[in-house]
Amino acid sequence: MKATGTYQPVFTGARRQRLDETVARYPTRTAALLPALWLVQEANGWISDQAMTEVAEVLGLTPAYVKGVVTFYTMYHQHPVGRHFVQVCTTTPCNLCGAEGVVEAFLKHTGCGELGATSADGRFTVIEVECLGACGFATPVLIDEDFIEGVTADKVRDILAGYP
């Protein structure tokens, strides 16, 4: 693989082993693509064009194919994001329960200012997402891998304190 700048391959050592174990669960290498992309995001925080090339090589795909898949699924980040990624559901059931107020509270207390932007200190990025499947626990918020139920605007500041 052509080394561009300081790109560090993801699939070495233990992570390569995890990938190989994953590949073994499916009859095709292509089927390990979504799991492989999760591994990249776990390692790097986002999925760069170079990472897509690495995944393509490891799985026997073309970089364009991998990119087509990456851009389809919204949980894969195509550019770097804040240290903590905040996803707030605002679809109708949560919308009826004040979700937009929760979003505004997150934008204010993180200092992000607008959706999709990363805070100046690089700590947070806040986005609005579609139904998180916890409508009875409005408003659910996903911060990194933590699924937090029942968030209201007044709880936001304390929640954020737990994410340095």
Binding site: D49, A64, K67, T71, F72, T74
Partner: peptide
């Protein structure tokens, strides 16, 4: 490839 989703979709290539 087809990149993105919905009415944001377009035909894409990988820079490499």
């Amino acid at each position: 490839n087809v990149s993105e989703r919905g009415d944001r979709a377009f035909i894409g290539v990988h820079p490499e």
